[in-house]
Each structure stands twice: as structure tokens, then as C-alpha cells.
Write a protein that binds this DNA or RNA. Structure first.
Lengths: 348, 348
DNA sequence: CAAATTCCTGCAATGGGTTGCAGTGTGGAT
DNA sequence: ATCCACACTGCAACCCATTGCAGGAATTTG
């Protein structure tokens, strides 16, 4: 059936051990022998069976990746970065979509455990208790969730929010609404934190609406709630919600940005494609995916060398100003109310 | 480290064989013994190592899934369906993104082969020659590519094109442009075929532009080419291109649908969210993903029973009329030029 | 009561590859 | 010529689980 190490060994008139060494520890094999072995292996199309190798080495060269919803373009983008980085390290990736279900998340982790060296959890929806239950099953790395003792990649959402609020303040907005995301989301907590902080420093009054599911439809729903208030700008938990707001606002005949400014989060591809193009906080999605895989791989290396201690990497954000934000319609003439310092953005 | 079958065996005072049988062939084990074993297994958190099992059974309970570009929302949607279906059958999925590179596709297949029971290839970009090289490596199932002797899932793009052209004809369009996709894409060939056929039956003149990459930016580029012609409607290879056209048309001050009608393909989520909402040909993305996995799994079952013969499943499409299509501005009064029969659409 | 079943369980081989240890052969030093 | 170190290579055990086969106990049959 499949060509094994023994077939190659036989063809090349050496033992299986030698073939194995020719691949894994080439310096232990005489040059002439190694070349012959590799030539034969190439001819017969031999490729080592990773599962079998993993059985004995304890390393599978696979990693798992778990996301809440592939329907949110944020995750395919992260996934793309993660997969590319894994490929660089010659690792394959197992993918699972939990459909926002924490229990399914747990059981998918359990199912994966034996086939991977570690798992990257994106925006995990697990409860603290569930989380503790899986923490020692394998090596976990979290993206956008704060967990101590393990590698984590965080996105500085609070700073993104600062940029967004300062932008609105500079335009002259006095009162804005935040459309809150899932309560269990760390990103949402950070964005709220950033909102409160920059609300204080800029003097912009902020109210909170929600929570809303991170979906387009929830944004449509939210738009009407926003219109029932007297805010002149709205900050959405993510672009999907912001796009929904834009859509519903258009239906209601509210001009964006003339009558209402809208800001999203994530900078998914379509934020730039809609009308008006959405002002949004860019998140380095592929970088984050890459970083998470990198941290996981580093962690595995370090662990095998006896080191410990969690690693953390924080990625910056960048407000992308497009056409969904403008000064509020009713506004005093330029009164110098803009923020004192528009600080330099961090790099990606 | 990890808990093995022997740990359970020891704890339950039986042999490893018995533990194994308690899981795989319960009826061979006395009820009392089985219950004790399962209880112990549960207590110590034993989960069979699938890689080890696969080594001896020849089945890994994993499948691979390869897509050209996760950045195109079509593929995450397919992926989501595929993963859900695989989960039903208790299979895990390996994911790989080829970044539209056929050579990478080949090597990713090779890397996966030993760890999966079969692979689903979505819109494979491989040449015929490359394809033949990998066909006997493992069990392959194709989505949107015609290959003989293996299971395939096809989407009836030609019929989708018919619906689109008849729609335009009914609106009174006389001359339309098709923005061609990747030359190696089977879907593109089908759409062209459907175009030519329905061009004949409806009397609508069709010109072809391109080929274009299936990306937003290519659509922006295409829009100007379209404006240089005298067509009143444009059919894009996919929604990404259509959205790009919409975007550029808006920039050029061309009103859609008043001055130009635009139709896309795929019905990605954002087709409904943009302005104007895009008329597009719906493709059952998740169903297609599910179907591909189902066919692959069936095929593997059948094969182990000695059956052969490729299976094929064709999925229907459905034109979704939104607001990017309308009668052409300059048009004779209702002249009965509409198609004779607007046939019933096929189900998903 | 002995013999034949039936039922359950354990032994040992198996799958594909890795690795500690021992054995072979070569060349250099004495 | 003898001894030794060193570089290669092969043997066999091992990773974890499955499965054909055989043995032992319990039950049925004659």
C-alpha cells in the first residue's frame, strides 16, 4: 500500500534505522550512504509517517486552532496568518469552529489533544472553570484572552478605543454611544475600559448600549436604539455590527457621516468596500495569528529545555479614518475643542 | 505524562486488550468488566490516542481540506459546512490555504496524506498533470472541479448564469459584459458556457473582459474597462469582483442600478450589506462543504466494502435579486422582449 | 459426570518510525 | 604487528492501541 521506511531500507540495502537517521540526524550517516538513501526515498516517493513518528518522539508537528465562528471575517484572517506561520515551521493545523458554544469548545479541545503539540484558542468563550479543566491537557496559547502562566497574544483594544474617541473628540462630538459586544469577550471588556478612560480625558460623554451579538443583524437592531438617544456618533464593538448600523441608518434615511458618525473595530476587508467606507480600528489580524503560533512554538521549545514562565505579546492597533466619521451637524464654529495631542500610533 | 490504555488496564486490573475492546467492541466484554473499565477510564481521563489507533487500523478519522484563499469569504463558508459535517462523523479536519499556488497545493497534499483518510480539494488550481500526480496518494474529493473516477461536488454555475442573464434580459438589457475569473477555474468555464448558451436563447449580446483575479481590487480595475464599452449591465465572476466594480462605479459617479446593473456570484454575506445591495447568484456554500465531506466519507466506506465508481453531486444555485439591477436607463417602452419562460429555480 | 459449547480474557504480533546500545570496519598511533 | 579511537550501521526495544488466536472458566448438552 503505502511506502514505508522499510521499503526504502530494502531498496537501498541498509537497515530501517539508517534510513530514519538519514532523515532525522543526517550527520550520523556517511555522506555516500545518506545520498543513496535519500535518492531511493525520493524515487519511491517515501514520506515519513508523522503519526508514527509522533508516537515515539512525543511530537506530532501538528497544532490545533479553535475559533468561535468562521462566519466572522476576523477569524479567517487570523487563521490565514496562523496557518502560514505553522507552515513555515513545517507544522500542519487542525481547525475547529465552535459555533460560539463553550461546551463544544471543551470537547473539541479534548478530541484534538492527542494529535497536536499545542492549541491556539482564539477569543475563547469558555468559562474560567471550563478553562481550568482543559489547561493541563496540552499546551494552550490564547489569542485575546488573559490567562496567566501560558503564552498569550493580546490586542491593545483599549488603545484602539482611545484613538477612536480622540478622533471623535477632535471632530467635535460631545456625546457618543458604544455598542457593547459579548460580555464574555475580553476584547469587549478592554474596549469598554478604554472608552471610560478616554471619555474622562477628552470630556466626551459616553453611553453604553447592548450587549449585542457580534453580527450584522445585531447592528441593524442597534441602530434604532442609537437613534432613540441624542448621540452624534456611535462606536461599535466590531465592524460587523458597525456595518449593520450603517445599513439600518441608510434605511431610516439618516445620513452618515453628516448626521451620525460610525466607527467599527477590526478593519475587516469589507469595511473599506461599503458606502460610506467605514472608519474603523485596524487590528493586525494575520500578525496576531502568526504571533500566536510563534509563541506556542517557542513555548514548546523552551519547555523541552526546562524553561518556564508565560510569555505575552501585545499588538498595537491603528485607527483607519475613512468616510463614516465627520464633525457633528450641529456644532459651534471651530472652538479649539480638539484633543491637545494626537499621539503617534503604534506600529503593527 | 499522558494517560495510556495500560494505565487504565492496570487500574482496572485487566489487560490492555480488554480496555481496548471495551471501547471498540463493547459486546465482546462482560458487562460488569466493561462498566468497571469505562468508569476507571473516565476517572483518570483516558482518551484513546487516535494516531496510534490509526497506525493499526489504517483509519485516522481525520480529513484534510484545502482551499485557495481564506481571504475570499466563499471558502470560510464552505469550510464551516465541511467542518460541521466532519464533526458529525467524529472526524477532525486539517486545514490548508494554498494562497492560490498550485505547487504549494501539491506539497500540502503530500504533507497531509499520511495523517488523513482523504482530502477535500476546493476549487483546486492544480494543472491536469499535477493532479494526476497526487490522485493515487490518497482519496481525493473535489469541489467545483470535474475529475473522473473520484467523488465530486459541482455547483451548477451555468444554470446560475442562465438565471442571471434571463433576469437582465427581462429587464430589457441588450448588451452585457462578463468579467472573467481565473482561467484555470472550472466555475469560470461553466459560467462562460452558461453565458454563451443563454446569450443565444435570450438574444442578449455578451462580451467578455478579463481574466481578472477573484479580488475586490480587480473589480475596481474592471469597472473602468466596462465603462469604456457600451454595455448596460455587468456580470462578475464573483461577488468580490462585483463589489470592486460597485466601488469604482461610485467613484466615477456612475449610478447603480440606474446607469449600470451589476450582478455577482456566490452571495457572500457582504453582498447583502453593501449599497446598493448586490443582486447575485446564491451558491449553497455550507451545503457544498457538507456534501463534499459526506461524499468523501461515503466513498471511504464503500471502498472498504469493495465498491467502486465515482459519485457526483450537483448543487443548484439561485439568483437573489437585490438592488444593483434595474432596467437600463435608455430603453424603449415595455416591448415584450422579456424571456418567454422564467423557469423555476432548483432547490439547494 | 464427562464432553462440548459459549463467553470472556490475555498473550503476542502488528503498524511505522526512533533510538540506546553493541558490533563492525577503518585508519592512526605506538 | 597490536591496540585504540572513531565513525557507521544494525539489532531490538519502544511508543500506543488493535486484533487473531488460544486458554480458562462457566454453562449447556449428552
Amino acid at each position: 500500500m503505502s511506502v514505508t521506511i522499510h521499503d526504502v531500507a530494502h531498496q537501498a540495502c541498509v537497515s530501517a534505522s539508517t534510513v530514519s537517521r538519514a532523515f532525522t540526524t543526517p550527520e550520523m550517516v556517511r555522506t555516500s550512504t545518506r545520498e543513496r538513501v535519500l535518492r531511493v526515498a525520493d524515487q519511491v516517493g517515501y514520506r515519513p509517517n508523522r503519526a508514527a513518528r509522533g508516537l515515539i518522539t512525543g511530537k506530532t508537528a501538528n497544532i490545533g486552532l479553535i475559533v468561535p465562528d468562521l462566519g466572522n471575517p476576523l477569524f479567517p484572517a487570523i487563521l490565514k496568518g496562523a496557518q502560514a506561520r505553522a507552515l513555515l515551521a513545517d507544522h500542519a493545523v487542525f481547525l475547529a469552529d465552535t459555533d460560539e458554544d463553550p461546551e463544544l469548545e471543551v470537547s473539541l479541545i479534548q478530541a484534538m489533544v492527542k494529535q497536536v503539540d499545542g492549541i491556539v484558542l482564539c477569543s475563547s468563550r469558555m468559562s474560567e472553570k471550563q478553562l481550568r479543566g482543559v489547561l493541563d491537557l496540552t499546551d494552550l496559547t490564547f489569542l485575546n484572552r488573559k490567562v496567566s502562566g501560558v503564552p498569550i497574544v493580546l490586542i491593545d483594544s483599549a488603545d484602539g478605543m482611545r484613538q477612536a474617541v480622540e478622533h471623535l473628540a477632535a471632530l467635535g462630538h460631545k456625546k457618543v454611544a458604544y455598542l457593547s459586544g459579548p460580555p464574555t469577550s475580553w476584547s469587549n471588556r478592554e474596549r469598554r475600559r478604554g472608552l471610560r478612560a478616554s471619555s474622562r480625558t477628552t470630556g466626551v460623554e459616553a453611553i453604553e448600549l447592548g450587549p449585542f451579538a457580534p453580527k450584522f443583524e445585531a447592528g441593524q437592531q442597534a441602530a434604532d436604539l442609537v437613534l432613540a438617544t441624542d448621540v452624534t456618533a456611535v462606536l461599535a464593538f466590531n465592524d460587523l455590527i458597525a456595518l449593520g448600523v450603517l445599513n439600518r441608518l441608510a434605511d431610516r434615511g439618516v445620513a452618515v457621516p453628516a448626521e451620525m458618525s460610525v466607527i467599527g473595530f477590526d478593519d475587516i476587508a469589507f469595511a473599506a468596500m461599503c458606502t460610506p467606507p467605514l472608519t474603523t480600528v485596524f487590528i493586525p489580524k494575520e500578525s496576531a495569528g502568526r504571533a500566536a503560533v510563534e509563541l506556542l512554538l517557542d513555548w514548546l521549545d523552551k519547555k523541552s529545555l526546562g524553561h518556564t514562565g508565560g510569555t505575552q505579546r501585545t499588538l498595537g492597533t491603528q485607527l483607519i479614518v475613512r468616510s463614516s466619521t465627520a464633525p457633528p451637524r450641529v456644532r459651534a464654529a471651530s472652538d479649539g475643542h480638539a484633543t491637545k495631542s494626537v499621539r503617534q500610533p503604534k506600529g503593527d
